[in-house]
Nucleic acid binder design. Structure first.
Length: 919
RNA sequence: GGGCGGUUAGCUCAGUUGGUUAGAGCGCCUGCCUUACAAGCAGGAUGUCGGGGGUUCGAGUCCCUCACUGCCCACCA
């Protein structure tokens, strides 16, 4: 059956088909391995994208890396599970649906909670799968049968169990604390969800009148400095440093708060710095974290002056109802009118914004739920310090530990409607809280039925932090249904970006270690920390930036849409681009020029396949076929096989060895470049050109030679496809099926064996490199002296007897690749011929030419200078007793050999220069 | 303020524990439609490895210092 492939590779023509095929055939579904698996499973969780998400370059990098590793491990024979899912993404999703409502002129508050949540579910059912569909299109080899959503029933059970357990352990508390509040989202957010931006603001200096015990102004003032004058409405004191001599006389005195009229104390606290502002700090416990701490130390009241939307509330008197920034303006103006505004200074400071909606965050006192995190952090620190979890690149371990060692309690409540509702009930009779795994119907303390469920939901990261345990069935691990957990927990690896190192990675480690430790090992013994970790390795990748190294952002308009690039260049080319640039620790400047190059690479392989199939078909006509049973492993060749066969097989093994090592080290770049170099540089540029000599299926040809050559050709190509397939799954799938001409031994190349190094042939590699050197020198000479491209010319070679023999044996290769009509050996290159010299040989092309003495001379002078330098450097070193006495013998030996080679070439070059006719 | 990176060819980046003459892709120059591939083939040019100092027989690689640059954490009103 003839193989027919179009002349140019068109990825769009094949990719959709294979993407669908992989999903439809469920090729990557990974059953739970038996009790005694042959190889340890490779397990990896997909960092669940938000249901609202669209695939961006960061996802694609992340997924390419995971897919390469998963396919690689799978092909190496490990049961490999890559588990996909999506995250309900509390704030993001709620925002999305709210926006939709706004466009319909509706508000969630009008619909009520239940209807709104139903609306979000509807939205999710409709649009929530978009990003996973995109993943399917990219060929991600995940197990779609295990797909989850973080609000699925079984995951919700885990969330509830985790909350209740922590509460029972006394690690969850509820209280009024200063939290970061987003007035737009109208919810508390965690410290991590606040991003700070440098902001050119002002420092307002305001004088507060000092009053005597009777409340009468003494005529003296204390000037405070603030960046947020509107918060003065909630001032309850002014603090000064006890050692501040400017204010010693004011200790114990009181002030009258302007605009409000409240009398507030002057307190001393050494937290106040002497050299900032005026040395006097207004204290607003309800609206500033430092002031809150100060307020607690001095037992001061807290006056909350803002509502959830950051408008001034009734506590603000005349300013009630104003937005915080309008209030600021008005207050500053009023103070100025009263003559109390001393100065307005420019002041650059950091302002916190909501990570989601970029609204300026308002620190606000409110009632929230927290996790007492230290006990969990302690385990998480130990897990990493004791080496149970390893980071790559290693430097992230420091970042992680630094954060973990300075961790604050985690505010886990959100005033949202979309999310896991906190399983706590408030009793209106005894005012106590009931926390329960089941929906409570009566108060656990007084038994009253007058209970209502907490309205807050949990931080989304609380549920995603539990994923490593919850996706495998925790907490419902009975002896009958714990096979998944036993087989796959801890997972092998986590691949993710540093942007969620604290959000997600750190939380998974804390929660995973905490909860898994209670699950006994399969043999019933106690699970130690080492086996409680959620994953054993973490690979952190960099950011994908645009071609100018700018961060991609919608506002800048420089976002590269992976789907668009994929449509233009093919998924494989984009994947290869990302892989080849993914060196650990460095951001990727995504440049389509690179992708263009890898599309060319795909095309190169495509055409190599066309060439091979063409010959397979020709051979078939001559009654020669390649035995398919010889495919699928690692080719070997007999010692008497032609040089190029021995060489390419040796190269293949060496390449496989390097690629395996590189992937084990997360060096996707090295792995990709090694394959690229092998396929293009060795297989196509040299081997295919040489093997053409053997592929003669004509009547008079030696069929044994041709058949053997064809067999090696196809074997090496088939193995190379397998080597490449984790990187370019589509192209290799297509060509691999074509190799087997419709009768493949497996459903997919992804289910075959990954090549591994099992054979070496240094002699062949050395011999081949001599031949290559000779050919390259002849080509260069031809170019220099202007031999027409098509002309075949004789060459003269001076070399050792043994190399003469070797070159003679392979003269047909030299003749074909360098367009040589005849190889002549000589004891001296004929005078008048331009020659090139290497340590092994001198070579000249026999050709009538215009001698360009000037250019020959300048070339020779340059080369001589270079060699002289090499020799001089080597001599200096070799004559240095320090070097000869201390350097290892191997290095000295190499240096000597190298010096002699340079010297030999130098002598040749000098005589050549001397032989040139005068200018 | 604390911490962590980066600085190597015109551009984007490799360069493993210090060891021969520092590499790749793209771009550039020259010549070729050589029947797998012009998305190709062949040949070629290009680097005081950010500056300075030190350790060493030997430094792109280790140490110190300076400069520039990026990021993370903290959040003195």
């Amino acid at each position: 059956m003839p193989h027919e492939l179009p002349k140019a590779y068109d990825p769009t023509a094949i990719e959709d088909h294979w993407a669908e095929y992989w999903v439809k055939e469920n090729l990557f579904a990974q059953a739970t391995p038996e009790d005694k698996p042959g190889a340890a499973p490779f397990t990896i969780l997909l960092p669940p994208p938000n249901v609202t998400g669209r695939l961006h370059m960061g996802h694609m990098l992340n997924q390419t890396e995971m897919d390469i590793l998963t396919r690689w491990h799978r092909m190496k024979g490990r049961p490999s599970l890559w588990l996909p899912g999506t995250d309900h993404a509390g704030i993001a999703t709620q925002m999305m649906v709210e926006r939709q409502l706004t466009s319909e002129g509706k508000k969630r508050q009008d619909m009520g909670r239940e209807a709104f949540v139903e609306r979000v579910w509807e939205w999710k059912r409709h649009y929530g799968g978009a990003i996973l569909d995109q993943m399917k299109r990219l060929g991600a080899s995940v197990d779609w049968q295990r797909e989850y959503f973080t609000m699925d029933e079984r995951l919700s059970v885990a969330v509830r169990e985790a909350f209740v357990k922590l509460y029972e352990q006394g690690l969850i508390y509820r209280g009024a604390y200063i939290v970061n509040w987003c007035p737009r989202c109208q919810t508390a957010i965690s410290d991590l969800e606040v991003v700070y931006d440098e902001h050119k603001g002002h420092l307002w200096e305001i004088k507060y009148p000092v009053v005597d015990d009777a409340g009468k102004e003494t005529g003296e003032f204390l000037t405070i400095a603030t960046t947020r004058p509107e918060t003065m409405l909630g001032d309850v004191a002014v603090a000064i440093h006890s050692a501040d001599e400017r204010y010693t006389h004011l200790h114990g005195k009181q002030l009258k708060l302007p605009l409000v009229g409240r009398v507030i104390p002057i307190i001393t606290d050494d937290w106040v710095s002497l050299d900032f502002g005026t040395g006097a700090v207004k204290v607003t416990p309800a609206h500033d974290p430092n002031d809150f701490a100060l307020g607690q130390r001095h037992d001061l009241p807290s006056i909350n002056i803002m509502d959830g939307t950051a408008h001034i509330n009734a506590e603000g008197g005349a300013y009630a109802g104003l937005d915080r920034f309008e209030a600021r303006k008005k207050i500053v103006a009023d103070l100025e009118a009263l003559g109390l505004l001393v100065a307005v200074k420019d002041h650059v400071h950091n302002v916190g914004h909501c990570d989601r909606c970029k609204t300026i965050v308002e620190p606000r006192l409110s009632l929230q739920w927290f996790i007492k995190i230290q006990p969990l952090a302690d385990k998480a620190i130990a897990a990493v310090k004791e080496g149970h979890i390893k980071f790559a690149p290693e430097m992230y371990e420091k970042t992680y530990l630094n954060w973990m060692e300075n961790i604050h309690d985690w505010c886990i409540s959100r005033q949202l409607w979309w999310g896991h509702r906190i399983p706590a009930w408030h009793c209106s009779t005894c005012h106590k809280i009931t926390v329960s795994r089941e929906d409570a119907t009566k108060c656990a303390h007084c038994g009253a039925a007058t209970i209502t469920q907490e309205t807050d939901v949990l931080d989304t990261w609380f549920s995603s932090g539990l994923l490593p345990v919850s996706v495998f069935g925790w907490p419902n691990l009975t002896p009958e249904n714990r096979a998944d957990f036993d087989a796959f927990y801890p997972t092998s690896l986590l691949v993710t970006g540093f942007d969620i190192l604290f959000f997600w990675v750190a939380r998974m480690i804390m929660l995973g270690c905490w909860f898994a430790e209670d699950v006994p090992l399969p043999d019933g013994s106690k699970r130690e920390l080492k086996d409680s970790v959620p994953f054993r390795h973490v690979y952190i990748h960099a950011l994908v930036r645009d071609a100018n190294r700018e961060k991609m952002s919608k506002t800048k308009g420089n976002v590269v849409d992976p789907i668009e690039v994929v449509q233009q260049y093919g998924t494989d080319a984009v994947r290869f681009t990302l892989a080849s640039m993914a060196s650990p620790g460095t951001d990727i400047a995504f440049n389509v020029a690179r992708t263009e190059g890898y599309r060319a690479f795909a095309n190169k392989i495509w055409n190599a396949a066309r060439f091979i199939f063409m010959n397979v078909d020709k051979a078939a006509e001559a009654g020669i076929a390649v035995d398919q049973k010889t495919l699928g492993g690692m080719p070997v060749v007999a010692a008497y096989a032609p040089l190029e066969a021995r060489w390419i097989v040796a190269e293949l093994h060496a390449t496989a060895g390097k690629v395996n090592q590189s992937l084990a080290d997360y060096r996707y770049d090295d792995a990709a470049n090694t394959i690229y170099q092998f396929f293009w540089g060795s297989f196509c540029d040299w081997y295919l050109e040489i093997v053409k000599l053997r592929l003669d299926f004509g009547e008079t040809a030696d069929k044994a030679v041709a058949g053997a050559a064809l067999a090696t050709l196809v074997q090496v190509f088939e193995a190379a496809l397998r080597l490449l397939s984790p990187f370019m799954p589509f192209l290799t799938e297509e060509l691999w099926h074509a190799v087997y001409d419709g009768e493949p031994p497996a459903k997919s190349i992804a289910l075959t064996q990954y090549p591994k190094a099992a054979f070496a042939d240094e002699d062949a590699r050395k011999a081949m490199s001599l031949l290559q050197e000779l050919i390259v020198e002849v080509r260069a000479l031809r170019k220099e002296i202007g031999v027409e491209e098509k002309a075949s010319v004789p060459i003269e070679v001076r070399t050792s007897a043994i190399d003469q023999q070797f070159i003679t044996a392979n003269s047909s290769i030299v003749e074909r690749l360098a367009r040589v009509s005849e190889v002549r050996f000589a004891s001296e290159i004929a005078v008048g011929l331009s020659k090139h010299s290497t340590p092994e040989f001198d070579v000249a092309v026999v050709y009538e030419r215009e001698i360009d003495v000037a250019s020959d001379r300048s070339r020779l002078i340059k080369e001589i200078a270079e060699k002289e330098m090499h020799v001089a450097n080597a001599d200096r070193q070799l004559n240095d007793p320090g070097f000869t006495s201390k350097a290892p013998a191997k290095v000295i030996e190499g240096r000597k050999r190298q010096r002699d080679e340079s010297q030999r070439v130098l002598d040749k070059l000098r005589s050549e220069l001397a032989a040139l006719p005068p200018a």
